[in-house]
Amino acid sequence: MDKVKAPILIKKGAEANLYLTEWHGRKVVIKKRLAKKYRPSRLDNQIRTYRTTHEAQIMHEAKNAGVPTPTIFLVDMKKTTIIMEFIDGKQIKQLFSNISVDKRKKICFKIGELVGRLHEYGIIHGDLTTSNMILNSEGKIFFVDFGLCEKTKELEAKGVDLHLMKRALQSTHFDFADECFKAIIDGYTEVVGSDTAKNVLDKISEIKKRGRYVAERKEGN
């Protein structure tokens, strides 16, 4: 952790604080999971250590799956800290409402392809929201925040992953959630094939029905 100069806090998140700084001449982000004093310290340490290591490992693996992620430079388990590449771009969440329908559909299609690649590789992101995707100046979409990810190829996990994506769209981008999700599924289908995509979609509606107070016949409305 040497040679880190005057880090600037860029985001005080729920999961971690993000600092921007220079490290060995590179622009980097330091992601530090601070202790959550509301929960018992043993449980808290367990969660933070697990998520830090897991996140670093899988962010690296995601590259093999063909999904752009920031490069990891250093993981400090004791300090539950990761130093990673700074991605110069914009959160998808921020630019979504200011672009044309076509552009948005294209981005969603691409997101769907990336999720498809992760799932084919056996990676479940676990927190697919438009805040966790960054579009850089070259038009490349990076996935970040792998703290809740899982390594599995189970249909159930894939279904939950996309169900959460859909829910995140509905709560944050309610005006065009449906068109976005449709484009994401199109992109997803392109990668995983229509048989798998259909199984995952069926799973999503099954997962939805497990929730509290869900009108069964309203799927797709």
Partner: peptide
């Protein structure tokens, strides 16, 4: 947000 109480988080089961 915008005319409704949006659901950001909930239980997936019970």
């Amino acid at each position: 947000d915008s005319g409704r109480y949006r659901v950001f988080g909930e239980t997936l089961d019970i």
